[in-house]
Structure formats: structure tokens, C-alpha cells
Design a protein around this nucleic acid. Structure first.
Length: 467
RNA sequence: GGCGCGAUAGCAAAGCGGUUAUGCCGCGGCCUGCAAAGCCGUUUAGACCAGUUCGACUCUGGUUCGCGCCUCCA
């Protein structure tokens, strides 16, 4: 039985899909105006892992991850770069695809772009106005009226009163309530815009996700994911929009549909923890972010994936070179255990005690650190017994996490870019050893070590790996 | 100020009311010509103060410290 920590309930709950055997999952993806950083990498890897586990559990998964390709920052950046919005967004969508592919992230089933769903957003806004949840202001903006939605704050645990007391909300004279948020922004000159009943403009950020999830999943779906920072206001606002849209009009049981049942948008809300640098959130506004491609210049992409899955998805994850070095050594241990085992296609006997332990860990709110501990125990077993069957189980279980699927030598040796004749030197060392010329043998080994190559003598001969 | 999360050994990171987490590092041994890898063993824990309990790292309350959200943010 899979249990998921549901942010809405603030507890782990047994996962029961709306439609037996299927799972619908929507994850808030990227706003594409820059390269993805490690925080984005975490979202992609975490929900990739989630979708893989749901599938491994036998569910037919539809995974939707959107792309926000219209927004203030995009417009600003395109102007700065003197390129069109379409050029800018496509450039960074391509970059994102490259980065995520390297991290072993499978493509979501559907990756809708906001600009393709403006019609759906306009419809949603019109219905919200009609039902009394939204109003067009004098400046041409359309706002959502938070006071009219009963459940506002239920996801983030905030009350309107507390939010207002925060006094950090800018006073906007066109809003009826400071907490009201924008559904439709009136266009400024020289900005891209769409025609609407309220004049030219463009959609607010929150309505995009409501419209896109509604398009693919309708009023009700299983899992909605995203980073912790989206809990408020983004996800809170999505709930307000979608549940109001699908429910009855204001003053006639706001958040309930006509048959009296609550029209809940999402059953399970999942939020992954932040990536931190020096115990501070990694973010663009703080400027302390590392892009995925920067990190990949120095570290193997699978090491980064391993590093992310090594921590529980809800825990904070501190980034540092030291931690990545550590992850690299750990992953090397797993690949070393698999070295020399050609195990073929993944197959898992879930009756095997270690497989069962792995499954229990994953079913416990995706406990990947525990699942990885199982892999290390299996590696130890492989090292001791040399059993191909155990090696196969190790590799098969790892495949569920998107790890250890390369040939060991590919990981341990990397691309062959040597100017040194490694094989020749190994052969020369062997000759020296055979004639007991250990000084010569050690000199060769030292020469290779200085080039970053570590030799390992085994009963089957000498192998090498990169330090 | 409001709301929430966390505090585990040198570092990272899980489970668990009583029995080895796991990885890296350190130490001892085996193996090796010597190493490396591997194997065996081993040193370092549970912020602080109370309470519940036969027994608490694990439950409850409080304290301290850290982080996050309340504004764009994955």
C-alpha cells in the first residue's frame, strides 16, 4: 500500500486513485527565461521518481508538467536580450530538455505550454466572474475575490486574517481586498497580448495551471506536485480558481457542486523540499543558484541524480562540492559491485526479502534513502557472493530509481579521451611485475595515478577507473 | 508579528518505544610484491529540560537554535 504525505491533510495517507488502476499527476514546471538550476533539477528528478514508482506499482500514469512561456520575467528578459519571446522561450525549453535528459528524467506524458491554453483561461475567468468569484477592475485587470471562496487558505494553513496582518501585501487601489490576486492583466504598450472581453491583456500566472490541469484532467485528479515555495500563493490560488470554477455560484454553497458533494480539485498535494546553499534556499532572487549545466561540467549527471535521491524528497538538501564528491564515491561503490556482471533486462522478484524491503521503503512516502540503503546491502552481497542473480536484482531495483543503468565501465572510466595508452601501460606494468621489477611497475602505476587513473588488480586481470 | 518544518555520530542521511540503518571519512585485520578494490571488525549519535513508560533517539509538554512561507520563486 502506497502512502503519500498529503500537504492538504498534513499527514501520510494511503493512496487511492480516483479511477482504479490509473493515476493522474500534474506538476508545476518551469518558467522558461533562464537555465534551470539545481532547485529545478530536484523537482524534475523527484517527480520523475514518483511517476516511475507509480508505474512500477502497476498504475497507468498520466503525468503532465506544464511550461510557463508567458510572464513578466520572460517579457523583460526577451527585451533585454533583444530577441522575441518565442525565441527566448524555445531556447530555454531546449536547454531544459537537454538538462533533464542528462539527469535521467523521463519526459512527462504531456508538457503543455501556457500560451496554447489562453482560450481555456479566458473561459475560466468568464465563468468565475459569472459565478461571483471574480471582478473586472477599472484598470482593465481582472481579479479573483478571495473573500468569496470559503476554503481560501486550506492548503497553506493560512487565514485571510493572518495574511492581511502580515502587512507585506502591496496596496493596490483597484483591488477590493489586498489579498485578491490577478487573473487577467491589462496589456501595457509593446507587450504581447490576447483579445479578451475585458480588453487586451495576458493571463495571470495562477490561472494557467488551473486551465491546463482542467484541460487534461477535468475537475478532479489524483496528485498535484511542485516545489514547497509554490504552496502559497500559487497552489492555494489554483484551488480557489478550480474549485470555484467547478462549484456552485457564490452565496449558494461556494465550494460545493450541485449534488452537494465537495468538488475537490486534487486528492494528494505533494511538495518537495528546497535545495539549499549554506543553509539558505537556493533561488534566483538570492542569486545563490547553480545551474544544472554548470554542475554537470564538474560532476557526472547520474551523480547529481543520486545526490538528489539520497535525501528524502521533503527534506532540505544542502548543495556543496563536498556532498557531490561524497555522492560520487558512494555511486562508485554500487557500480563497482556490478562490474563484470552482464545481467540483461531488469526483472524483479518482489518476494525477495531485499526487494520487499525496497518496496516497503518506496511505499512509505517514497523513502528513497531507505531504498538506496537496500541497494548498498545488495552490493555488499554481490561483492561477497559474486552471484549474478543478486547483481541482477540490484540493477533491476536501481532501474526503478533511474540509476545504475549504464555499463559499469562507462561510469567508472568515462569517455576515453586519453593521450596515454592506458592498456599499453597496464601491459607494460604486468610485464614488469612478472619479472619482479616492482620499481618499474610502481612507476607506471604512479604515472597513471597522476593522470587520474586508478589501477585495480583482480584475479581476472588489471582494470582501471577514474579517480 | 502570524503560520509551518526541522535539530541523529567527523560529514551526509533513514527507520524504529527495547534488537547492525546506509554511504563517506577514521582506526585495526584479511587479501595484495606493495597498493587499489573488496571482505571482516571497530571508534564517533540522537540540541536542552521535564513528563509518560519496566524501558525513549523514537510518545507528550516546555526551552533554545536553525530554516521556510506570509512578495516573484521549483
Amino acid at each position: 500500500m502506497l502512502k503519500i504525505y498529503n500537504t492538504l491533510a498534513r499527514e501520510k495517507q494511503t493512496f487511492t486513485p480516483i479511477v482504479a488502476g490509473k493515476a493522474s499527476m500534474y506538476v508545476c514546471g518551469m518558467t522558461v527565461y533562464d537555465y534551470c538550476h539545481l532547485g529545478h533539477a530536484r523537482v524534475m528528478v523527484v517527480f520523475d521518481m514518483v511517476s516511475r514508482w507509480l508505474r512500477a506499482s502497476g498504475l497507468e500514469v498520466t503525468y503532465v508538467r506544464n511550461i510557463t512561456d508567458i510572464d513578466d520575467k520572460i517579457i523583460k528578459r526577451a527585451n533585454e536580450n533583444n530577441e522575441t519571446i518565442a525565441q527566448l522561450t524555445q531556447r530555454f525549453i531546449d536547454a531544459m530538455d537537454e538538462d533533464s535528459a542528462k539527469l535521467g528524467v523521463l519526459r512527462p506524458d504531456i508538457e503543455p505550454r501556457a500560451t496554447s491554453f489562453v482560450g481555456g483561461m479566458l473561459n475560466m475567468i468568464a465563468v468565475l466572474i459569472e459565478k461571483g468569484f471574480a471582478y473586472a477592475a477599472a484598470n482593465g485587470d481582472v481579479y479573483y475575490s478571495v473573500n468569496n471562496f470559503e476554503g481560501y487558505g486550506k492548503l497553506s494553513g493560512k487565514s485571510l486574517e493572518d495574511l492581511r496582518a502580515g502587512e507585506r501585501v502591496e496596496v493596490d487601489t483597484f483591488k477590493k481586498d489586498p489579498m485578491d490576486f490577478v487573473l487577467w492583466k491589462a496589456a501595457k504598450p509593446d507587450e504581447p497580448s490576447w483579445e479578451s472581453p475585458w480588453g487586451k491583456g495576458r493571463p495571470g500566472w495562477h490561472i494557467e495551471c488551473s486551465a491546463m490541469s482542467a484541460h487534461y484532467f477535468g475537475a478532479h485528479f489524483d496528485i498535484h506536485g511542485g516545489g514547497q515555495d509554490l504552496q502559497f500563493p500559487h497552489h492555494e490560488n489554483e484551488i480557489a480558481q478550480s474549485e470555484a470554477f467547478n462549484g456552485a455560484a457564490v452565496h449558494s454553497k461556494a465550494s460545493h457542486s450541485h449534488d452537494g458533494k465537495p468538488c475537490q480539485m486534487v486528492n494528494y498535494w505533494m511538495h518537495n523540499g528546497f535545495v539549499r546553499v549554506d543553509d539558505e534556499k537556493m533561488s534566483k532572487s538570492l542569486g545563490n543558484f547553480f545551474t544544472i549545466r554548470t554542475v554537470l561540467e564538474k560532476y557526472d549527471a547520474e551523480v547529481v541524480r543520486f545526490f538528489i535521491l539520497r535525501a528524502h524528497y521533503r527534506s532540505p538538501l544542502n548543495y556543496s562540492d563536498q556532498h557531490l564528491d561524497d555522492a560520487k564515491v558512494a555511486l562508485t561503490r554500487l557500480y563497482t559491485a556490478l562490474r563484470g556482471h552482464d545481467v540483461g533486462e531488469p526483472t524483479i522478484d518482489w518476494q525477495h526479502p531485499q526487494a520487499a524491503r525496497f518496496k516497503d521503503a518506496m511505499n512509505d512516502d517514497f523513502n528513497t534513502p531507505e531504498a538506496l540503503a537496500v541497494l548498498f546491502d545488495l552490493a555488499n552481497e554481490v561483492n561477497k557472493t559474486k552471484l549474478a542473480e543478486t547483481a541482477r536484482l540490484l540493477k533491476s531495483l536501481a532501474s526503478v530509481l533511474g540509476l545504475l543503468q549504464r555499463n559499469s565501465d562507462d561510469f567508472l572510466q568515462g569517455e576515453v579521451t586519453e593521450t596515454l595508452d592506458v592498456d599499453g601501460l597496464i601491459q607494460a606494468r604486468l610485464t614488469a611485475k612478472q619479472s619482479k621489477n616492482f620499481a618499474e611497475a610502481d612507476a607506471i602505476r604512479k604515472q597513471l595515478a597522476e593522470a587520474g587513473i586508478v589501477l585495480e588488480d583482480t584475479p581476472q586481470g588489471t582494470t582501471w577507473r577514474r579517480a
